[in-house]
C-alpha cells in the first residue's frame, strides 16, 4: 500500500464513507449503519493507561468497548431498539462533526483513514449537552459486490471522564 493522501478522488471517497456513517448514526438509521460493517469487523475503543497512552493489548488491558465481530454492534443496536434499556428511553440526540481526514494507506483493495470527530450529545429530558472528542481510525475494504465496508474502526475517546452513559451512537 502506498500513502495516497493527495489523491483527491480517494479523499472524496473516504470522506463520503465517513459522512455516511455519521449520518446513519445521527438519523438513528441503525440498519444502514450496521450494513456499513463487515461481519468480521473489529470495533475498538481503548481505555487510557495514563495521561498520554491508551491501552494497546485488549487481552491483557481494559478497553471501553472491544468487539471482534459485528455481532457485538448488533447486540448494542438490539438493546437500544428493545426499548427495555433506560439508556434508550428516550435516546439522546446526536450530531457528528468530522474533520482532519488523512488517508494513511491505500491501494485498490483497502484503505486506512484517520480523522477527528466531535460528537455533540444532547439529552432532551435534562437539556444536558456533552461533547465527545474523538480520534477515528477506519480500515475500509472493498466489498465483494462493489463498494467499501468497514473492516475495523478504532476510536480514541480524548475526554475520557465520561458522563454516566457512552454508547456507539455517541462515539
Amino acid at each position: 500500500m502506498t500513502p495516497a493522501s493527495v489523491d483527491p478522488a480517494l479523499r472524496a471517497l473516504a470522506a463520503d464513507l465517513l459522512f455516511r456513517e455519521a449520518d446513519a448514526l445521527d438519523n438513528q438509521d441503525w440498519a444502514n449503519w450496521l450494513a456499513m460493517y463487515r461481519e468480521d469487523a473489529r470495533y475498538w475503543v481503548p481505555a487510557w493507561i495514563d495521561e498520554h497512552r491508551t491501552t494497546a493489548d485488549p487481552d491483557t488491558e481494559l478497553s471501553l468497548i472491544y468487539h471482534t465481530t459485528r455481532r457485538g454492534l448488533e447486540e448494542r443496536v438490539g438493546r437500544i431498539q428493545s426499548r427495555k434499556s433506560i439508556t434508550a428511553t428516550p435516546l439522546p440526540r446526536t450530531l457528528h462533526l468530522i474533520a482532519g481526514l488523512t488517508i494513511a494507506e491505500a491501494d485498490t483493495e483497502a484503505m486506512r483513514v484517520r480523522s477527528n470527530a466531535a460528537v455533540h450529545v444532547y439529552d432532551a429530558r435534562t437539556a444536558a449537552h456533552h461533547v465527545a472528542a474523538l480520534r477515528y481510525e477506519h480500515s475500509f475494504r472493498c466489498a465483494p459486490g462493489g463498494g467499501w465496508l468497514i473492516a475495523a474502526k478504532t476510536i480514541v475517546l480524548v475526554n475520557d471522564r465520561m458522563p454516566s452513559v457512552v454508547d456507539f451512537y455517541a462515539l
Binding site: 475503543v45 439508556t87 465520561m162 457512552v166
Partner: peptide, 24 residues
C-alpha cells in the same frame, strides 16, 4: 476482561442502565 467490558463499563450493557437510574 471481556466479561467486565460487557457488563460493568459505562460503555457496557448493564452498568450504564444503573447510572441513568441514579439520575432519574
Amino acid at each position: 476482561i471481556r466479561n467486565y467490558e460487557d457488563f460493568f463499563n459505562p460503555t457496557g450493557l448493564a452498568s450504564s442502565d444503573d447510572n441513568l437510574m441514579f439520575e432519574y
